[in-house]
Every structure is written in C-alpha cells, then in structure tokens.
C-alpha cells in the first residue's frame, strides 16, 4: 500500500479546501446573490422592471455598443494576432520569437488608464502624431468607436499571439509533408488540415478577446468618458448615482445582462479548449 500514509489523512484533508471555498462563497457569492436579488426588486417589491429598463433606450444602445465593439476587436484581433504569430513561428530567428513573446506578455497586460494615456499622447487631440502629421486639421478624432477599437487591439493582438503560438507550434511538420505527399497544395493543406486543427484555438482566442474588451472599463473611461455608449460606462454612471430616484437597481440589472453575455460566450470556450488540447497533444 504505497498510499497508506496519505489515505490515513484522506478523511480530513478536504478541510484544507474549506477556507478557499468559504472565502469565494462570501466575497464572490454574496455580491452575485445581491445582484440577482436587486435586479428583481424595485421599491421593495419583486419586479422585472429593472430588467426591462436595462434592455431599452440608452441602456440597450450601450449594451449593443459594447457587444459590437468587443466583437469587432475580437475578430480583427484574432486574425491579426494569428498572422503575427505565424510570422514569428515560421521565422528562423530564435531571438525574434523570444522578443515577441515577452513583449506580448507585457502588452497583453497593458490595459487600463496607462494604455489610454499612451494613446492620447500619441493620437489624441494634442497627441504627438496628430500634431506632427497634421491629423487635427483633417478632423481626426481618437475619441470614438473606431478609436476605441484601435486602442483595444493594442492589448488584444498580443493576447491572441500568446494564445495561438502554442497551437501553431503544435502543428506538426509531418502533417504538412504528409499532405504534400498526398498531392495537396499549400492552400489545400490549410483548408483540410491546418485551419480545422487550429479552429478550436482560434475560436477560443476570439472568446478570450471578446471577454477582455467587453469587461474593459478603465481605458474607455479615461479616453472617451461617455462619448461612446458602452455598458461598463453606463453601469459606472448608474453606480455613481446618475439615475432616477428609485431606479438605482438598474445598475444591477445591467450587470446581470453583462454576466449573461459573458457567461454565454465562455460556455462556448471551454469545450473548444478541451478539443484542441486533445488534438495538439
């Protein structure tokens, strides 16, 4: 019985997991319950008024705006990130690869307020590039939907590189050679083997990028304030008391909307990841 010393402790060793589970239940679970409870309460009575209000008018515009922005950034970021990763993976220069991966590690974490300021200093109204290239005279503005997408790509593309490089490394050279050996052109290899094998990873990356942009608040707040309707900005607004008296719980309803969207997107991600792990083992 090799496990004898362990199994003696088995009966009570699960206790070590209790503090963690209790902590999550309290700090994470209670606020979630409160969101759920608050969403369906108005003026002390059970009601769906908050939910209804959260998917109407300006709130709906903001929710759709967030989804549109995140979807755009996710798809464009995934495509560009994949091309960049492929360029790096196929390169013979080991140092280039290391440099790009390290830079991606840093830049994918480069979000929030500093990111916004870096871009404002570059392409904002008095940014270095804006003024030196005379963009300001041509009606250029960074503070809109497209500007925000440009800035979000700055952390999304590196994140995609980090996600997709291991998958590209996992594409065995034998597969390409076996395909060639069976008469396939380069394009046919990608169509029948390369892209299908990468698809779970690519979709997983899209989901991750979507989640990152969807939840982003700091960058948008620092860059556009409320010029672009986004659900995170609306929630912050409502939390800061910028709502009708008695409608405070709309912020909670909007939060629930966000969680539902994020949850749906995540639900796609996990099974995909499992499948790609199996293929690329």
């Amino acid at each position: 019985m090799a496990n004898a010393p362990l199994s003696k402790n088995r009966s009570k060793s699960w206790l070590a997991a209790v503090p963690l589970l209790a902590f999550v239940a309290l700090v994470f679970g209670v606020p979630l319950v409160v969101i759920l409870g608050g969403t369906f309460t108005r003026g002390g009575a059970v009601s769906t008024a908050n939910v209804t209000e959260s998917v109407q008018g300006a709130y709906l515009t903001a929710l759709l705006g967030s989804v549109k922005l995140s979807a755009l950034v996710a798809v464009v970021g995934a495509v560009l990130g994949t091309f960049l990763a492929q360029a790096v993976v196929t390169s013979r220069f080991r140092a280039l690869r290391e440099a790009v991966l390290t830079a991606s590690g840093v830049l994918s974490n480069f979000g929030g307020v500093p990111l916004a300021f870096a871009w404002i200093a570059t392409l904002g109204n008095s940014g270095v590039i804006t003024t030196s290239l005379g963009f300001d005279a041509r009606g250029w503005s960074l503070y809109n939907f497209w500007g925000l997408a440009l800035v979000y790509l700055y952390f999304s593309i590196p994140l995609m590189v980090l996600v997709v490089v291991p998958a590209l490394d996992g594409l065995r050279p034998q597969w390409r050679e076996a395909a060639q050996n069976n008469g396939a052109s380069a394009w046919q290899f990608w169509r029948y083997v390369g892209i299908p094998v990468l698809t779970p990873t690519l979709l997983g990356g899209v989901v991750l990028l979507f989640g990152g942009s969807f939840a982003a608040y700091a960058t948008a707040q620092a860059m556009v304030g409320s010029a672009v309707p986004l659900v995170t900005l609306q929630i912050a607004n409502a939390l800061s008391g910028n709502v009708l008296i008695g409608h405070e719980n709309v912020a909670l309803a909007l939060s629930l909307d966000m969680i539902v969207v994020a949850g749906l997107v995540m639900a796609v991600y996990l099974p995909l990841q499992r499948r790609s792990a199996r293929w690329l083992r």
Binding site: E177, A179, V193
Partner: peptide, 21 residues
C-alpha cells in the same frame, strides 16, 4: 518536381495522421 506532384507515397516516423480527420 514539387513535392505535391511526385508519385511517391511516404510513411513518416510517427504522428503524421491528420488529427482532425
């Protein structure tokens, strides 16, 4: 002649089957 137009079937050392098919 490019590899995909040669008339030779090849068996590799290992793991050359397409995993998605």
């Amino acid at each position: 002649v490019p590899a995909n137009r040669r008339d030779a079937g090849m068996v590799f050392q290992s793991y050359s089957l397409f995993p998605n098919l």
